[in-house]
Computed example of a mutant assay.
Amino acid sequence: MTTQQAPSLVPAGSRAAAVPLLALCGAWAATRLGMTVLLVTDDVGIGGVSTEVYVLYARWYGLLLGGSFPPDDPTWQYPPGAGAVILAPALFPWLTYFQAFALLALLADAVVTVALARAGGAAGGGVWLWTGGLPLLLHIPLARYDVQVTALAVLGLLALNGRPRLGGALAGLGAAVKLWPLLTVLGTPRGRTTRLVWASAAAAATASVAALALGLARPFGFLWQQGGRGVQIESLGGSALALVRLLGGAGRVEYRYGAFEFTGPHVPLVARASLLLTAAAFLLLLLWRLRARRWSGATPFDAALCAVLLFTVTSRVISPQYLIWLLGLAAVCLTSRHTSQRPVALLLLPATALSTLAYPVLYQDVIDVTPLGSGVVLVRNGLLLAAAVLSARRLWSATV
């Protein structure tokens, strides 16, 4: 006599779908716990990542509460919208500034993870690139406000196809905080969609900056501080100057404008070359926009990653937190099966790991311009340069 097995109350398809979701939740929780532990046990000194929050950001917080953006502060180099992010920990008055800032970073990270999972599925490459790629930066993402900015860019990009006004508004808010999210509207399809997105971005950016300018004094002082930046030791130009130094050339490293920069006879030439390359990148993107004829749902994603990559590698500054932006944009690309940027996204993973090796692990070697420190930064920058060239080539081939 045989007995029949009772039918399961949960459909097989639902059980199968729950497996990657549970794996994703477990991976996110485990990695973020590890990042948090690293943050609270971080050592003070060179490479002390958390000091940025409880020393520099906390000082800015006090000034902003007093009604003014930081006056004559060479380390304040951000648009007025950054003030809102620095003030945001006030939402949790029962926590210390340090605790509230880290909590907000984790919440922004969780929002990005959920948005990517909804867009590409819990088993999709995009959400796993973000979930597994961000911890390669150790605890840096929790001690900088770039996760919050990246969240605005990611949410804006994901909204472009269905809700263009919302996508543009989020890009505009992101631009008011750190400029680069405005590049996420570059790849919108011509016609009505572009008009809606660009108008919404301009309106949101203008309104947010105006509101902050009315409430706080000295909102545009960052323009003078940003213009004084030199060539940071971690930039592509910095790698060139490090090679000159290793080969016996002149030049030294000094702490200026909140970062370690090269000074010496070759620095002005390298700085001008970086600006010319940035202008060339802008012209290349403009030419692509004029020549592009084939649009897919992934084109705005691919164009955003390409644009930010080009401006990153030609910048006079390539801080490790810039990789947060690139990981977020690459993850958005991987939510679409039509993306042309899959190999670019894979190149970003070793570049992210090497960024962490350069800072904070070997940062003293980088400052001292040793062969080890300079070599790590050079390889990282080589990967970013290769990713930028490959990204532009694949975007062009897919659309022009």
Rank of each mutant, 00 (worst) to 15 (best):
V377T: 14
R144P: 00
S397G: 07
A259F: 11
P189R: 13
R293A: 12
L39E: 13
L107A: 12
L103K: 02
A331N: 09
G375T: 01
S239E: 04
A12T: 08
R294E: 09
F98D: 10
G174P: 07
L383V: 14
T75G: 09
G187H: 07
A271T: 07
V344L: 05
V154D: 01
R289P: 03
T51C: 04
A280N: 07
R218W: 10
T51D: 07
L305D: 01
A345C: 03
E52C: 02
A203W: 06
T206V: 08
G126I: 06
G45K: 02
G248W: 05
L384E: 03
V55H: 10
G258W: 04
P350F: 12
E52S: 07
I140L: 15
C333Y: 09
G191S: 12
Q364L: 10
Q4S: 13
P11S: 03
V185N: 11
L173P: 14
E261F: 04
G67Q: 00
R59I: 06
L269R: 13
L155V: 04
A240S: 06
L269V: 14
S200W: 08
G48Y: 02
F98Q: 12
A205E: 09
V19L: 03
A123Y: 10
L247E: 12
T263A: 11
I367C: 09
W198M: 09
G83L: 01
A205M: 10
T399I: 08
L56P: 03
V19I: 05
Q232C: 05
Y359F: 15
L290K: 05
L104H: 10
I324C: 03
L247Q: 14
A6C: 06
G124P: 10
Q4N: 14
V37W: 00
D43K: 13
L287K: 09
L166M: 15
G172H: 14
A12Q: 08
L116Y: 02
V177F: 05
I86L: 01
Y255G: 04
T335D: 06
E52V: 06
L384V: 11
L173Q: 13
L212R: 00
G13M: 00
V231S: 01
A203P: 04
A250R: 11
L236P: 03
L183S: 14
P20A: 01
V111A: 15
A171S: 08
A392E: 12
G156D: 07
A304Q: 07
D109L: 05
E234N: 02
T314F: 06
C25G: 13
A90E: 05
G168M: 14
S68N: 10
P141N: 07
L91F: 07
V332R: 04
